[in-house]
Design a protein around this nucleic acid. Sequence first.
DNA 1: GCGACTTTGTGCGTGCCTTCACAAGCGACT
DNA 2: AGTCGCTTGTGAAGGCACGCACAAAGTCGC
Lengths: 250, 250
Amino acid sequence: MTKPPHAGSEESPARLRSIPEASVARLAVYLRKLGELAEEGAETVSSDELAAATGVNPAKLRKDLSYIGSYGIRGVGYEVAALVQQLERTLGLNHRQAVALVGIGNLGHALAGYSGFSGRGFPVTALFDVDPDLVGIHINGILVEHVRAIPEVCPARGVTIGMIATPASAAQSVCDLFVEAGVRCILNFAPVVLQVPEEVEVRKVDLAVELQILAFHVARKNVAAAEQQATAANASVNGHPVNGAGRFTE
Amino acid sequence: MTKPPHAGSEESPARLRSIPEASVARLAVYLRKLGELAEEGAETVSSDELAAATGVNPAKLRKDLSYIGSYGIRGVGYEVAALVQQLERTLGLNHRQAVALVGIGNLGHALAGYSGFSGRGFPVTALFDVDPDLVGIHINGILVEHVRAIPEVCPARGVTIGMIATPASAAQSVCDLFVEAGVRCILNFAPVVLQVPEEVEVRKVDLAVELQILAFHVARKNVAAAEQQATAANASVNGHPVNGAGRFTE
DNA sequence: GCGACTTTGTGCGTGCCTTCACAAGCGACT
DNA sequence: AGTCGCTTGTGAAGGCACGCACAAAGTCGC
């Protein structure tokens, strides 16, 4: 190590910025698994165990964890509790992040009631829509307000993250309202590329695209299977040659 | 070009396999935008236009498109209709992909009714759950069946893609059933790493992780802002220095 | 107290992805 | 017909991420 451990150091800004994007995504996964392990009473985990449980290469995992500091003990592994705490701090989960959700349609309704959010430190504290039939009702105890109230309500409730689950046509204007409200991180479920000032971070989740990617792989597999069948025309009737329901070690 | 164009060639398996994963994801995005353009009556698009609309580097877009063959006209751009057709073929959207969904909870219910799927060539043709209160009801005209029927129902309806929206604890066993049913592509919303034989492709969508990644960026931005405020202590009261609701050119 | 074993942390080679920059090709205009 | 301008397609360079393999560092057993 080049730097002294600095046991109880607050935050290390320089380090935060240098964590590769790909690693951040995995850190969140490690954190979840570590949470489970903690509940099961585990005190330490080795990188091999945690890597296997999260489907990651052990070396990659260790490198990921090294970005947030050396919290492992050689010959033993990682102390679960300490690692959880450190990860939460790194990921900004030490203070709760209030979330606002716009668009109470099919998907939005589900997101509003999704326990995975509030259960993991992301309380949904504001709901918005334009539909007069929806404005005024409560979902999970939260009032649905009109979209135009965004610039007022969000700062008041300390919203740091906005989720957009509107139709594509409304997404950009909602996004503009979020920006106006000072929200600097947006999770976008609408199939549009949002235009935002550079200090605003947008992540896009596009369910239809996910399926299309899978469809591509279906096609690829079919072609591969056809080739295989053509070249080596041995056995394997076109009933499914899948091997049982066993567990595999990848 | 090394190869002759081969105008109406069927499928080119060798090429399919060589498309980088990252490009496939973007091809799906291009396809959607091209669909919109086609509806607006556009006949051609330049790589610059399409790149701007999808938030991608123009050179990257051209390279992506080059993987599926040269369908552009120099000096003019890409013929929208032809490109749409070619993309659909490459992504395996020329034949509809039947989708099965397991887990009719909060999220599952929304997914079952999500118009973005059936509207884009992914009809949800089977729903499953274990809850006796759910089994037997219809959602959007589709019967909810018991999970144990998966190995029987899926092949019968030609299901090629399975979606798992169950709690984490049930995901692996459902996955095993899909595998048994011959489903080779799975979209997993449960926060677990699924163990599958290698011929099966799994994509994972983890909403909580998406939020945690954003939370990290919130923290990062806060630190950056604090630094900036500390070093250059000029103006910018801590009201939001955001610039209006204008449109930005990135 | 010492040696053997275990596990972390990381330097380094490898391959993929991105981006720049430019030649090749096509249409329009004269 | 020739020239000019525009856009594609791609070679090459740079950067990032992955994963191996090993040294450093700690624990456990004797």
